[in-house]
Amino acid sequence: MITQVYFWIFSIVALATALGVLVSRHPIHAALCLIGTMVSLAGIYSLVAAPFLATLQILVYAGAVVMLLVFVIMVLNSAKDDHTPRWDAFGWAALAPSAATGFFLLRVLLGADAAHSFALRSTDPPAARGTVEALSALLFGDRIGAWSFLFLVVGLLLLSAVVGAVLLAKHHLDSPSAPSTPRPGGH
């Protein structure tokens, strides 16, 4: 019972903040709304016996990714960008396909045999499932399997992403002219 109440609270907050992202005027406001969404989702994760994931969500997603986003917004002092309108005709037109996507997804989900396929089957007690021990056993268990390999690959991915990002950004910081103005003739 209490789970349901928490779920409804978290889901309404998540939806509201997501809409906030959609309609915000300033990117900073949108970033804050995004954090709100992510934290709500973390709450939902904890409700479904995925505590580790919930923690990861807050630490990494809300705490690192969105922070990075905020830093970049603040670096670009013209981020408010008066020239770009907040909403235009294409915006209204874009609502239609999005609504259609949502509608058809819901239609599929709420269709006839949905109840059958979505039945809750897990027999383990919920609280015992998504713990660090369980997940680590799965990831790094006695067999050298797909997951551990994947783990290593993800590490490489993160490394290359960081290197690439530094290269992309540094390229411009090295130029003798002022970093915020492009050289005439482009570069």
């Binding site: 998540a14 939806l15 997501a18 809409l19 992202v21 959609l22 969404t37 907040r86 909403w87 294409f90 915006g91 209204w92 874009a94 609502l95 396909p97 999005s98 609504a99 996507t101 949502g102 997804l105 819901l106 989900l109």
Partner: peptide
């Protein structure tokens, strides 16, 4: 599904 739709709208509309 709803969050996905809102995210899609944000990408296209802004």
């Amino acid at each position: 599904a709803l969050l996905f739709a809102i995210g899609l709208a944000t990408v296209m509309a802004r």
